[in-house]
Design a protein around this nucleic acid. Structure first.
Length: 160
DNA sequence: GCCAACGTTGGC
DNA sequence: GCCAACGTTGGC
């Protein structure tokens, strides 16, 4: 029996604002950008194999004073090889990645909305309805993760 | 800047 | 293929 693949449509994508913030995305050409620098296989696989055009994602600021969700972005182009892996001068350079045999991928995203106020991680952690969200689970380090629809809606609802 | 909790690497 | 050592993430 053929099992129908169930696709997720909501994601969360982390970025350090000192490297690339949602404000940088707002100022980018067409408010779009290639999501480069992902060097984790789980995160790569989700981008490469599951993210589809039209999928929505929370933009999350990590490793900063107040980590949290700062807005929404949309996938406008599905995954293709990450050029920064070819560049010896890039911090994301990986000699195992070649044009013929690419190892790392990214998607193109476009800004949808910047929230008036950040939704801090601290608040998300306190919300008992979000217990199935990978972000609030102990030890989570994934830079890209699926967001269950229920959690997506709850987070949007929770901001006043 | 510390360090827990991961993921990755490489010797065997 | 195991697993110790090492590197990285990211909240605090």
């Amino acid at each position: 029996m053929k099992v129908k693949q169930k696709y997720n449509h909501y994601w969360l994508m982390k970025s350090e604002p000192s490297v690339f913030s949602i404000e940088d995305l707002r100022q980018a050409e067409n408010q779009t950008n290639f999501w480069d620098g992902v060097r984790n296989y789980q995160a790569r696989n989700m981008m490469r194999d599951q993210m589809k055009i039209g999928d929505l994602a929370f933009f999350y600021h990590s490793s900063c004073k107040v980590p949290g969700i700062v807005g929404v972005i949309e996938v406008i182009k599905s995954a293709y090889p990450d050029k920064t892996a070819l560049d010896p001068n890039s911090p994301y350079f990986d000699p195992r990645h070649t044009k013929q045999n690419p190892r790392w991928f990214g998607v193109e995203v476009k800004l949808v909305k910047i929230f008036d106020k950040i939704i801090p991680l601290e608040i998300l952690k306190k919300n008992t309805k979000l217990s199935d969200l990978a972000l609030v689970k102990k030890g989570n380090r994934l830079s890209i993760m699926p967001v269950p629809e229920s959690a997506w809606l709850e987070i949007l609802n929770s901001k006043n």
